[in-house]
Design a protein around this nucleic acid. Structure first.
Lengths: 196, 196
DNA sequence: GTCTATATGCTGATAGAC
DNA sequence: GTCTATCAGCATATAGAC
């Protein structure tokens, strides 16, 4: 079934949809979700506005497709090897740095998603909650705990915050060396304990 | 000169302007800058749209006035007493938690301000740069350094990131106990050193 | 699958009456 | 100081031709 997608109209349409998402990420990332019109996105896709609506019936559908795709590209396993873990995180960080448009979009969306009436609000809430849980599990793993301790959970929230916050500063100022700060923070989190 | 403002038309106008800012903070905070119309703000102020424009000639002027006012309310001195410093930061954090609308506005704006074309983009860039510098000075002070060390500067950026990042998580989920995480992070930052 | 044409409504902003 | 009336522009969305 998946292979059959590679031929025929369906595959073509799917490819087009992917391409549209790529352009949309760029546009939304630059100007924000609300400030970017479907016309503009259509334009950078070489489509008319009505043509774009053929693929994504409205703006919200486009947004959700975008967010969903990012989701799927970020699945990762849990490891007990601390070096491997740090490595994995830094790789993800590097990926975010490379895909600036997507990172920018994310920063933009999170701000807007704060409003409960935002189309993807509950998605963001769940997403953050799950990320914290996963991080806590991961930190417990490398700390030799069966279950995440209170401190593991606190560290997880801090790590998530650090990630977002450093990205913000980097987005505002491209010279900001996010990686350096992130590495320091990671090391600190792995080495420090309240009880030492 | 300042006293004379308290009487007459000028004082009245000033009070009205302040009131408008209060309402605007709320509106922008909820829905973001771009997604909030001048008409909506006018409405919650009990004004017509043209009436609102009498006080702030355009949308951008309103935004800048807002950001400017927050700026002035956040000036603070440098202390060498670590407990005093932590106390001051936690007070500011509590204030942000109380003034949810303003915090929300800030989160929203920072996301949008990432775009160089955003009206207040350069303001945000400068603001963050200065905050990092101030924080580094402050951290140097409580660490007994004459000048901020490299590590002090890294810690400053991390603290700023932590602040933003935890606020984001709290805004998404009001049950998120931001203060607890912030306290942990502050303690960690003051106790930990790369060289220990 | 993509287009043109069009409907309807909201945007920021201006002009000018009161 | 506040209003109504109005503008040009752009938004999302639909209908229907090719």
């Amino acid at each position: 079934m998946t292979d059959s997608k590679l031929r025929g109209q369906y595959a073509k349409g799917e490819a087009r949809r992917e391409e549209i998402l790529d352009r949309a990420v760029e546009a939304f990332g630059k100007f924000g979700y609300h400030a970017t019109s479907m016309r503009e996105i259509a334009k950078v896709c070489g489509l008319s506005q009505a043509g774009l609506l053929h693929y994504y019936p409205n703006k919200e559908a486009l947004l959700l497709a975008l967010v969903d795709r990012r989701e799927q590209n970020q699945a990762h396993e849990i490891t007990k090897d601390i070096a491997l873990w740090v490595d994995g995180i830094l790789k993800q960080e590097a990926a975010n740095e490379k895909e600036k448009a997507l990172t920018q979009l994310w920063a933009n969306l999170v701000g807007e998603a704060t409003d409960p009436a935002f189309p993807a609000h509950s998605y963001f809430v769940k997403r953050y909650s799950r990320t914290r849980k996963d991080m806590a599990q991961q930190i417990a793993g490398i700390s030799g705990h069966q279950q995440p301790t209170e401190e593991d959970q606190v560290k997880a929230a801090i790590l998530v915050a650090l990630w977002d916050g450093l990205q913000t500063q980097w987005l505002l100022d491209p010279k900001f060396d996010m990686k350096r700060y992130f590495e320091y923070g990671l090391t600190m989190l792995t080495r420090y304990s309240q009880f030492k």
